[in-house]
């Protein structure tokens, strides 16, 4: 019998779903004999309140595999996530929003009132208005990763912004194979990065903002380029889980000659990227204090789990830095 999949998206951007589509042939070969997509809003017409829209309770179909992308930002998303947990045997947290809050969890550095006031009262093109309250779900106090919600146990974590199709395929194939676990290898982006490293910074002691291009020859392969951190740029490779290029290949942003911003989240659940990154910078002779916007940039994708929270504002500052 085919394995039934129910997929939902919460506080997210649909990039994870496009990554599922980028599986291409892999998914075509599985459907429909081995894999049945019974509910995935981007592709399939399955409704919470029944086909005729007259149901009274939000209901999802029974399935073997549940997939959730996005963090939990409001009451309805929480309800959807818990309903899916109830209906599935295995739950996959797909993408860094689901595993660590992702970019939307940058908002955790502010109170909800600040966020809502900006949107509905602080925009030059919006005459000030009250926050909508009819029918729309109430926001939770902050953005939550899935595993922070009581009762929402996650079986498989597939981080990434977006997760690479290789890992989505590997996880699904493992479940089809009867396995109950799947984990990305615990390696850092640097472990998989093929640039030249000399263990010391090429420039001065202060970090360079992304205002100039790295030094490299366009026609030369990445193996001929000096490490971006050693060139003086902030690169979160040392504290970020590898896998953005799939099972093999050089990290994707580095291939574009741009430094890593940490989109796969921490290497281990227990690691402390902020502290580890300070150490990594010091080890190549860069002053960690010179990193601009340190708190938010080092927590760019991992603001859930209380990593980011509102701090008292300093006078004259536009917001958390």
């Amino acid at each position: 019998m085919a394995v039934r999949v129910v997929s939902e998206w919460l506080s997210s951007c649909s990039g994870c779903e496009i990554s599922i589509l980028n599986l291409g042939d892999v998914i075509l070969d599985l459907i429909p004999a081995k894999l049945q997509l019974v509910h995935i809003p981007a592709l399939v017409d399955s409704k919470y309140f029944g086909p005729n829209g007259d149901g009274t309770h939000l209901t999802l179909p029974e399935c073997e595999v549940g997939i959730i992308s996005g963090g939990v930002r409001n009451e309805e998303q929480k309800e959807v996530a818990l309903e899916l947990r109830k209906k599935c045997k295995f739950l996959i947290a797909l993408g860094t929003c689901a595993t660590n809050g992702g970019i939307p969890a940058q908002a955790n550095a502010w109170d909800n009132a600040d966020v809502l006031n900006k949107v509905f009262k602080g925009s030059i093109t919006t005459p000030p208005a009250e926050t909508p309250t009819q029918v729309v779900p109430k926001l939770l106090d902050r953005v939550y990763a899935l595993d922070e919600i009581p009762g929402l146990k996650v079986d498989i974590y597939l981080p990434g912004c977006p997760p690479h199709p290789d890992w989505i395929a590997a996880a699904i194939l493992a479940l089809l194979d009867g396995k109950t676990e799947f984990k990305l290898p615990e390696r850092s982006v640097c472990d998989t990065c093929q640039v030249i490293r000399e263990k010391k910074a090429a420039g001065g002691a202060n970090i360079k903002r992304s205002l100039t291009n790295a030094t490299f020859e366009a026609e030369e392969p990445i193996q001929k380029m000096r490490c971006l951190m050693e060139q003086g740029f902030l690169c979160l490779g040392p504290v970020t889980l590898a896998g953005c290029a799939g099972k093999e290949g050089n990290p994707r942003c580095i291939d574009a000659r741009m430094p890593c911003r940490g989109c796969f989240g921490p290497i281990k659940k227990t690691s402390n990227p902020l502290v580890d990154m300070m150490g990594a910078l010091t080890s190549v002779g860069i002053n960690p204090q010179s990193v601009p916007d340190r708190r938010l940039i080092l927590n760019r994708f991992i603001g859930a789990h209380n990593k980011l929270r509102p701090l008292p504002q300093r006078p004259g500052m536009p917001g958390p830095r």
Binding site: S11, A107, W110, L116, K118, V119, V136, D293, I297
Partner: peptide, 19 residues
């Protein structure tokens, strides 16, 4: 009804422009 809100305009504040 559009049910979700993320607030990019707020958390843009304070970020380096080039980021």
């Amino acid at each position: 009804h559009v049910m979700a809100l993320r607030g990019f305009e707020k958390f843009a504040e304070g970020r380096p422009v080039e980021e």
